[in-house]
Each structure stands twice: as structure tokens, then as C-alpha cells.
Simulated scan of single mutants.
Amino acid sequence: MALDFYWYPKCGTCRKAKKWLEENNQDVNEIHIVENPPSKDELTAIYKKSGLDLKKFFNTSGQKYRQLGLKDKLPDMSEDEILELLSSDGMLIKRPITVGSDNITVGFKEEQFKDAWLA
């Protein structure tokens, strides 16, 4: 089964992750995270399945995150409001997000990818 690979092609980290997946014979279903951001329902499912803190899904180094002052606003937002915000703009989402039947990774760290995708 192909992995759902939410990425932004201009992102160097995304390109590294994609190259790693290809070199390790992983089939990927590429999804442009800005043109086709995951819906609120998709994000909710990914978030719940990942076991990660919801704040880990934010691209905290992105311009949009800083422009909106989210560092100060997030602590006062509900989970529902955060998911709504994330699903509204793919540039707010940390990338790549790689979704398989049993695992989810957010961002790219080679060790994490080995653990998740070569098991």
C-alpha cells in the first residue's frame, strides 16, 4: 500500500524525505500540502493516530505562523479551533506528513523514518 505523503515540493526537507522513501522502495501517493491541505477530518484522524501533541503539527518556523502570532495564541485555543486553523492553510502545517497503515511521521528525521517505514 502506498504511503500518503503530504509535502510542499519547494521544501528542501520534503525533497530529502521523498528521496529517502524512493531509495528505500516505498511507494508514495504525493499530496501537495498547499494546493490540497488535509481536511479538518483528515487532520483529526492523522493527529489521533499519531499519538503526537497537536502543536507538533505546526510549521513553527514558517512565516505564516509568525505573522499570525500563533506562539502566543495556541495555548488559549481549543483542539477544535486548532484543527480548524491547521486545515485552513497548508503552509501552517509542519511537513512532510507521511501516513501509512500503522505509522505516521511528521517532519523528516532519517532515524525516525527507518523505524517507521523499514520495519
Rank of each mutant, 00 (worst) to 15 (best):
D4R: 13
E30N: 09
Y8F: 05
Y6K: 03
L74K: 04
Y8M: 01
M91H: 14
V34L: 07
L83D: 03
Y8E: 04
L43A: 06
L43E: 00
Q63F: 11
L83S: 01
F113W: 02
Y8G: 03
L70R: 06
F5S: 02
N25K: 15
Q26C: 13
T98E: 02
L52T: 06
I46P: 00
E81N: 11
N24C: 11
L74M: 07
I104E: 04
P37G: 06
G69W: 07
E81W: 10
M1F: 05
Q26K: 14
L92F: 09
E111H: 09
P9I: 01
E30M: 11
A119S: 14
L74A: 01
P37K: 01
M91T: 15
K18A: 01
V106G: 02
V99I: 04
P9N: 05
Y65R: 02
V106A: 03
L43T: 04
D115F: 11
W7G: 00
H32I: 10
K48V: 14
N36M: 11
Y47F: 15
D72F: 11
Y47Q: 12
K73S: 10
F108C: 01
L52I: 08
K40S: 06
A17N: 03
N59T: 03
P37V: 05
G51F: 11
K55M: 13
S87I: 06
N25L: 13
D41E: 14
V99A: 04
L86Y: 00
D102E: 13
M77R: 06
T60P: 02
T44C: 14
N36L: 13
K18P: 00
T60H: 08
H32G: 12
R66M: 12
Y6P: 05
K55R: 15
N36R: 13
P96I: 03
E30L: 11
E30I: 08
W20R: 05
D115H: 15
C14D: 01
Q67C: 09
G62D: 04
S88N: 09
N29L: 07
K114D: 12
K55C: 12
I93K: 01
W20S: 02
L70C: 07
C14L: 05
Y47C: 08
Y6D: 02
V34A: 07
K18F: 03
A119W: 12
F5T: 00
L118W: 09
K64S: 10
F113A: 03
P75R: 10
K49A: 04
F58G: 00
I82G: 05
M77P: 04
E84I: 07
G100L: 05
E81F: 09
G69Q: 10
S87L: 03
I33E: 01
G51Y: 12
T13P: 04
E35Y: 13
D102M: 11
K49F: 05
Y65E: 05
K71N: 08
R15H: 01
I82D: 01
E111L: 11
K18D: 00
D4Y: 12
L43H: 01
I31V: 09
D89C: 12
K64D: 08
K10W: 11
D80R: 08
A119N: 13
Q112H: 09
D72T: 14
M1T: 04
N24D: 08
D89P: 08
R66I: 11
T13Y: 07
S50F: 09
G100T: 08
D4I: 14
K10H: 13
E79V: 13
P38L: 00
